[in-house]
């Protein structure tokens, strides 16, 4: 199951990191706006929440951590 979670997190990371830079910026996140039912403000909130060190870019590790937390919450519910 851990591999599946990692695989999913990486898939989602790649959706955000279209240019395959290895990190996701605020702009990358805002680009998802037409595709996802979230407002620009909400996408900004998602970015800030995932950006644990607050350096303005999301690493795969930060993304995976956020996704794991989300899954744990879902399981708890």
């Amino acid at each position: 199951p851990e591999l599946t979670v990692l695989g999913k997190a990486q898939e989602f990371f790649q959706i955000c990191d279209l240019e395959d830079k290895g990190f996701v910026t605020r702009q990358d996140m805002q680009r998802l706006h037409p595709e996802l039912p979230l407002s620009l403000e909400e996408l900004e909130k998602v970015f800030v929440t995932l950006d644990a060190d607050g350096n303005g870019s999301l690493t795969p590790k930060e993304f995976i951590t956020g996704f794991s937390q989300f899954l744990l919450e879902q399981i708890a519910l």
Binding site: F12, I15, P37, L38, E42, K45, V46, T49, G66
Partner: peptide
């Protein structure tokens, strides 16, 4: 604690975000 409040709101948004990604993935062929 304002941080606690911000955290709670962000969690909901995060769940919304990942749920959207999940349905986007499963929704496409």
């Amino acid at each position: 604690d304002p941080n606690m409040k911000a955290g709670a709101t962000s969690e909901g948004v995060l769940a919304n975000f990942f749920n959207s990604l999940l349905s986007k993935k499963t929704g496409s062929p």
